[in-house]
Computed example of a mutant assay.
Amino acid sequence: MPGNLPAHVTLVGAGVIGRGWIRVFARHGVAVTVHDPDPAQIDRTLDWLERDLAADVTAGFVSAEARTKMLGCTRGEADLARALAVADYVQESAPEKLEVKRALFADLDRLTPAEAILASSTSALDIGEIARGLAGERRCVMAHPFNPPHLLPAVEMLGAAGTDPAALTKACAILSACGQIPVRMTRYVKGFLGNRIQAAVVREALHLLESGVADAVAIDAVIRDALALRWATIGNFGANHTNADEGITQYFGRYEPSFATLMNDLDSAPPRFDPSLLRAVGLAVEAREGVTGVDALIRRRDVMLTELRQLKHRHDQG
């Protein structure tokens, strides 16, 4: 394979995140084996891949030739040992339970070729705890994607205490070659970067909703049609830097008292996550987007994400 592309990737766990990883690797011609302890889940995931690629061909995002190539690169394998036998890179996307991931990584370490990278999609657990005590800890890394991985390219990266720095560098190079953007963290923190930031926004959005300040559509409008538009182009700190003629130092120098007052006021009780309220929110979102059901909303999201990425790519290319 050219450059840093692996010849063979094995995806362990065929849920929502695992299936997105298929497209990350297969679009570059990498041979992908999909494993899940539930054979029916493998079938559902491969069915999803066919349908999702067909929809992208219809939308003009993917050529019929590329679709055929990706389907031809991908196969399912219910036997874990066979799935791992020739892997150069393994991406684990199993349930978010430490005991499950520890047991699974012990199997991955035992069954894979000695130089294969073992990467976890964990969204909150410490890779140091997952890989602790393994003979092959040196090759274990965290590679936490965002959903869906094939459309949101950032991947949070971190090694365990015993990870060989060269293995982490290699993992980042592999993901970069596959179109992802590795984001190197310097130490573990629960929830990493994205989920901590997301939790802060979700907490306040639900607080505003539950306390009757505004409805879900209004709250989403401020995020979707204001804040997120800036964040999607130049990020949070980039937006801060452009909010004053002399940049971020002037901006926070001017508004520090206001931000301090707001931040002190954000110390609300955790939201209740009331099911009836959340169901109403889901229906309101679907009505706003003109769709019925989560699958239709996912497709609408993916179309807009693809178009946005294409636009950003054109601007990045100058």
Rank of each mutant, 00 (worst) to 15 (best):
250 Q>E: 15
250 Q>G: 09
252 F>L: 12
252 F>A: 01
253 G>Q: 13
254 R>Q: 15
254 R>N: 12
254 R>V: 14
254 R>A: 14
255 Y>P: 01
255 Y>N: 01
256 E>T: 09
256 E>D: 09
256 E>Y: 07
256 E>I: 01
257 P>M: 03
258 S>I: 05
258 S>A: 15
259 F>H: 07
259 F>M: 13
260 A>I: 00
260 A>V: 03
260 A>E: 06
261 T>P: 00
262 L>C: 09
262 L>M: 14
263 M>E: 10
263 M>H: 06
263 M>T: 04
264 N>F: 02
264 N>I: 00
264 N>A: 15
264 N>G: 15
265 D>L: 12
265 D>N: 12
265 D>Q: 13
265 D>G: 13
266 L>R: 02
267 D>V: 13
267 D>L: 13
268 S>Y: 08
268 S>G: 08
269 A>M: 11
269 A>W: 07
270 P>C: 10
272 R>V: 01
272 R>E: 11
273 F>K: 11
273 F>G: 04
274 D>T: 05
275 P>A: 01
275 P>V: 01
275 P>E: 05
275 P>G: 01
276 S>Y: 04
277 L>R: 04
278 L>A: 05
278 L>V: 10
279 R>F: 09
279 R>H: 12
280 A>D: 13
282 G>V: 02
282 G>D: 08
283 L>W: 07
284 A>L: 05
284 A>Y: 01
284 A>S: 15
286 E>L: 10
286 E>Q: 15
286 E>F: 11
